[in-house]
Amino acid sequence: MLSRSQLLLLVVGFCLNAAVSADVDCSKRPPFVNPKTCCPMPDFVTAELKEKCAKFDMAPPPPTDGDASGSFESKRRHHHPHPPPCFFSCIFNETGIYQNRNLDEDKLKSYLQVIFKDSTDLQTTATEAFTTCATKVAEFEANLPPRPGPSPPPGFPICPHDAGHLMGCVFRNLMKNCPDSIRNDSQQCTDMKEFFTKCKPPRGPPPSGEDM
């Protein structure tokens, strides 16, 4: 049985740990670290699929007006760009994983067993991420007001945004819930994870935002 002094030390230690974990200054973004450094994993898209969908692998240029270019949102997108929706529409159509806003769990499982063949932990985490995010994207889009979306820049095809939203959500989910077996626990990675886990962006679409 613990003595009174030992019990006191445990309580103090717990309180200090809680204070440290809660002490995240959301006004100060930590130095940027490539997410793949903190959660090293194979590319989700195979070389064969990249070649098939190469013509869709384009992202619109960042905003150039003064307000947008200096905003938190523009910096967040610079470091964590939203995946090109047409590119991932192509990827999902080729694999059959996600079509017409429906997730095919059997095809997802087969694909994850190939690309993440060395980590069953990663397969499980990715499956949970896709399932959670597909539901959230569907809920988000069902609540969108009935209005036309912005026109794409000249030269860009018109594609539904749900594929890009889904992949953005899945990527962030994987970074937050990176399996212990592959996670990098360096101080930089820990600071980055705590910031994006506890600090909400001032604005931005929910499917690729902090709640996912």
Rank of each mutant, 00 (worst) to 15 (best):
L2V: 14
S5F: 11
Q6R: 14
L10D: 01
V11A: 15
L16M: 06
N17T: 14
A22S: 15
V24Y: 02
C26N: 07
R29Q: 15
V33T: 13
V33Y: 10
N34V: 05
K36P: 04
K36H: 10
K36G: 04
C38I: 04
M41F: 00
P42D: 11
D43G: 07
D43P: 13
F44T: 02
L49C: 01
K52M: 04
K52A: 01
K55H: 08
F56L: 08
M58A: 14
M58Q: 14
P60F: 02
P60V: 03
P62R: 08
T64W: 03
T64I: 11
D65L: 09
G66R: 12
D67E: 11
D67R: 14
D67T: 12
F72S: 06
E73D: 09
P81D: 07
P85D: 09
P85F: 04
F87T: 03
S89H: 09
I91K: 02
E94V: 04
T95S: 13
G96S: 06
Y98L: 09
Q99T: 15
N100Y: 01
N100R: 09
R101P: 01
N102P: 00
N102Y: 08
E105W: 00
E105D: 12
D106M: 10
D106A: 15
L108H: 05
Y111I: 07
L112I: 09
L112P: 01
Q113P: 06
Q113R: 13
V114W: 01
I115C: 05
F116T: 03
S119P: 05
D121C: 06
T124I: 14
T125E: 06
E128V: 06
E128M: 08
T131A: 03
T132S: 08
A134H: 02
T135H: 11
V137N: 04
V137D: 02
A138E: 05
E141W: 05
A142H: 07
A142V: 00
A142G: 03
N143Q: 11
P145Q: 07
R147T: 14
P148M: 07
P148R: 06
P150C: 07
P153Y: 08
P154L: 01
F156A: 02
P160I: 08
P160V: 10
H161C: 13
H161N: 15
G164H: 08
H165F: 13
L166F: 11
M167G: 03
G168P: 03
N173E: 08
N173Q: 11
P179E: 10
P179Q: 10
D180V: 10
N184I: 01
S186I: 03
Q187D: 14
Q187L: 12
C189N: 05
C189G: 09
C189P: 02
E194G: 01
E194R: 15
E194Y: 04
T197E: 05
T197M: 05
K200P: 01
P201N: 07
P205I: 07
P206I: 13
P206Y: 04
P207N: 08
S208A: 13
E210N: 12
M212L: 10
M212V: 15
